[in-house]
Design a protein around this nucleic acid. Sequence first.
DNA 1: TTGTAGGCGTTATCAG
DNA 2: CTGATAACGCCTACAA
Lengths: 377, 377
Amino acid sequence: MLAVSSTPFVLWERLQESASSLIMASSGYAGGNFMKSKKVTILDVAQLANVTKSTVSRVVNDSPLVNDKTKQRVWKAIEELGYTPNRTARSLALGKTNVIGFVVSEQQISDVVSNPFFPTVLKGITTVANREGYNILLLSLSGQDIKSYREIIQRHTVDGFLILGGPSNPKLGSDLDKLKVPYVFIGKHDPAAEHSYVSTDNEEGGYIAGKHLIELGHSEIRFMVGEVKGSLLSHNIERIAGFKRAFDEAGMTFAEHLVVKVPTDIESGYHFMKSYLAKDRPSGLILSNEVTSMTCLNLLIDEGIAVPEEMSIVSFGDAQFFRNTRPSLTTVSQSVEWLGKTAMELLLQRISGEVSYPSPIVRKPEIVLRGSTKKMR
Amino acid sequence: MLAVSSTPFVLWERLQESASSLIMASSGYAGGNFMKSKKVTILDVAQLANVTKSTVSRVVNDSPLVNDKTKQRVWKAIEELGYTPNRTARSLALGKTNVIGFVVSEQQISDVVSNPFFPTVLKGITTVANREGYNILLLSLSGQDIKSYREIIQRHTVDGFLILGGPSNPKLGSDLDKLKVPYVFIGKHDPAAEHSYVSTDNEEGGYIAGKHLIELGHSEIRFMVGEVKGSLLSHNIERIAGFKRAFDEAGMTFAEHLVVKVPTDIESGYHFMKSYLAKDRPSGLILSNEVTSMTCLNLLIDEGIAVPEEMSIVSFGDAQFFRNTRPSLTTVSQSVEWLGKTAMELLLQRISGEVSYPSPIVRKPEIVLRGSTKKMR
DNA sequence: TTGTAGGCGTTATCAG
DNA sequence: CTGATAACGCCTACAA
């Protein structure tokens, strides 16, 4: 269980119970003394209940040291006025916002449209956030930039960061550590550095994918990875290492040209693959993400290349997603929602101080077998 | 152009320019007097620069009434200390947060995984938000509940709401109006009420879809719409009205059974359609959203039903999305990204007071012809 | 052009 | 158990 204080939500729950009176009070107020619905503060409540702000504050925060009689009186006043505590003021006083910054590079937010990774991880995050009373603030930064993080954390806008993995500055982690800013990387497995991150074991994933195809008797295997500005994402570099390990283990020789870099946007990716497959027709294909996979699948359909008869396909990504493609794909499962959930939970632990040391969580990937891979005849 | 004040960002820009010194200062500080990197406030800057808080505040907000010399001194101090204004404090003083609440029902956030509508509209929103210096706070509510909105707006957490259309309380709009809360509905076309919303003309969309199939000579046409808790979403009710109009206009008789309600989740939707098509095999099908369409497409592939030879398909949704399905689908285009952008722009205008009256923006849908529809022989 | 002082709405620390 | 009172960090008349 997370040791997050639940006091701020007591009020909420109470208000829920008294729906009708609340609505009445509010509209009565709006049409009454004030044209521009003046906001009711803790002071208004205090006066109406004949107590001081302090007492109201205690009631609202469910402090035990307040008389039941007074408590009732205060609650009545609260409901009558339709009072809701001002979060901003509370944040200022407490130095805590109950908001998590979800950092997504602009590149990623652009890809978002077609890439199911983002919404899936977001679902995981919000699930936990809602449960624990946190909100998610969407932050799209230029990414690499330590200064931006610094800015934002100092503005005291958020209690911590969730950073969607990607090609970010390698020094970012230690910089954030230095600033004592709670953060967790999502999907950025960095065995070299001792940072906070949640990820699947990409090296292992690459290994599993390669091994699977090798065991099925394929020898002409290509690993197609997305290329961002001419270079590879770190998780893909690891997967390639695992892919190579599978070759080594099988006594097969690995070569550079087995790894094919493809553009990540659908349009150019499609054309690239089309011309690639015209020259080189492997029997096994590994695809590094959802977009690339969909693009490739479309191409195979358009070209009339049968899966798995003519070509076996293994994809990296969310297993659920690839269940609903046609054909459905054998996939090295990423558990993207788990990624989001776990990252959020870890972050909350760091914020509450339960965990202060760097705490990577790495999950072994599994391969989900479906109809897209087949034994070589 | 939007009349949003740009003052809060002056500081940001300046800091960007002096990257190196900033980093140095910050780490120097952290390792210096304070173990727990004490936050530097406007007061620290004031003292170092030998002025008062007021002056620093003016400098930071780029006020013209401050001497150039002092201005320089203050900036120097700011950079030396790595000062960043505290957003929470500023919000409290100003009564403005520069944050927009993006309200998504829990239902929607759950569907998110497979539904490209959400991320696409989000992209539109963040594009404008980033440009105008706003951040997006993700709010997932139980949806219908006016009390929740009231709560959140009163907590002064956001400057306005973007509400993702759906089965929300019909009174919600007027309730929000009463509370003088800036808001814009996205995708909720409600000709009856005079509220703020951005939408495509759903009635027209339904009409176009129906007309298209009728003109191709189809007479056995079904409209498959998602069913949420046994009832239809408002936009679908409108589309059905348009669909009916197309029938009326063609002198064909419309009947209830032409509208088929299907479960919105992939699993049960698939099974439902499967048993439905076993009994009733129309020649033309209209599908109301991305998920339903994908589900249906998968079924058709699995059952070996050829599109468009045996069945013509028209889908509602993002045109770009349906370009990348196989087969690609003739679609009544929603311009989902436009929806997000426009909604955000409208909301900002309402916040700044440029637009105070209810201001619906409705866009006529277009039909994008692709290979999934074909003349009846 | 700059400084002073009060306020924004809450919470926390002391007294009583 | 309850009430003053001082933070929290910034903004903004009003003075000087």
